[in-house]
């Protein structure tokens, strides 16, 4: 059973009607072509209507949609099954919330790194809800250095509700691990493309989020804090999440306007959660395009531009 968010309900009603019409057509051997055509037209229109007027909070909901593809699904589709996962930070352990490894994109090796969420309760726990510990960030850095050594481009896929705020995480230096990644990623000599595919929460996202091109899928969010936490801190109540989502300017459109990201990857109409295959191929095309463009620059030039880009972020008077 597909999951529908509250604002998607009208779509569910139409889809149910279509299913019913098909059933009748089959059972009673009636020609329902016209009726089906009409309903499908309505569905397309309604989808367009809903998805062209999404509020920031609805985008946040979409970014967390349970049927939205997660990192490994993207990687497996984009590398056409050639992905070989690499494990461990060589220090403490293997963080299941952060995955990475090499794979082939139409014959060329690319390093993929990203936070991984789980598909069901058990896997969500196993993946720690996509919240990495310091060893996750250190694994990510190890893999980036590996890619640099063998001159392979890096793609990071970001989808996290935040870095894990646990006791051991603090003991092992969560702050230091994220800081080190941000710092080192500025100067890694191969192309780095970062794509927010779901949630981009604060330092946990930025810890693998420094690149030549930082892109957001259309229905994702990226900010310094989640709207819920923002609501609880600034309004001292969980009830202002919609307003907080609005105020934080966390959508791809707003982030682009503020020049904090480089581009938006359009999702198929109806969202990535309804169109997995199409989304994979759109993302793959974008990755290939960006790698080709970035490969035209000399490594030093690329790093200088990367550093320069981040140095220009912010607004003061």
């Amino acid at each position: 059973m597909a999951t529908f968010l509250d604002f998607e309900e009208p779509l569910k009603a139409l889809e149910d009607q279509i299913a019913k019409a098909k059933e009748i057509a089959k059972d009673a051997e009636l020609d329902m072509t016209d009726k089906l055509k009409e309903l499908e037209g309505k569905l397309a229109k309604k989808t367009e209507e809903i998805f062209s007027n999404l509020t920031p909070w609805q985008r946040v909901q979409l970014s967390r949609h349970p049927e939205r593809p997660y990192t490994l699904a993207y990687i497996n589709a984009i590398t056409n099954g050639t992905f070989q996962e690499l494990h461990g930070d060589r220090n403490v352990k293997d963080d299941k919330a952060m995955v990475g490894g090499f794979g082939l994109v139409d014959g060329n090796t690319v390093m993929f790194i990203g936070q991984q969420k789980g598909m069901n309760t058990k896997m969500r726990q196993y993946r720690n809800f996509g919240m990495a510990n310091p060893e996750g960030y250190r694994k990510a850095l190890r893999l980036m250095k590996l890619a640099e050594k063998f001159n392979k481009p890096i793609v990071t896929l970001i989808d996290t509700p935040g870095a894990f705020p646990g006791l051991e995480a603090e003991e092992r230096g969560q702050g230091e691990a994220i800081a080190r990644n941000i710092y080192e990623m500025m100067n890694i000599k191969v192309p780095i493309i970062c794509i927010i595919i779901g949630e981009g929460a604060s330092g946990g996202a930025l810890g693998i989020g420094v690149g030549d091109k930082v892109l957001m899928l259309e229905n994702t969010w990226y900010s310094v804090i989640s709207p819920e936490s923002c609501s609880s801190i600034l309004w001292r109540s969980w009830d202002y999440k919609e307003i907080a989502a609005e105020a934080l300017k966390l959508t791809s459109e707003d982030m682009k306007k503020l020049k904090l990201i480089d581009g938006i990857i359009k999702e198929p109409l109806g969202g990535a959660h309804r169109h997995h295959e199409e989304t994979y191929s759109i993302v793959k095309r974008e990755i290939k395009r960006q790698i080709t463009l970035l490969n035209k620059l000399k490594p030093e030039e690329r790093c200088a531009k990367r550093i320069d880009k981040f140095c220009n972020m912010g607004v003061t008077k």
Partner: peptide
């Protein structure tokens, strides 16, 4: 919001 996050990177 996002502007302050990016100061970490800056």
């Amino acid at each position: 919001a996002g502007l302050s996050l990016m100061q970490m990177a800056k």
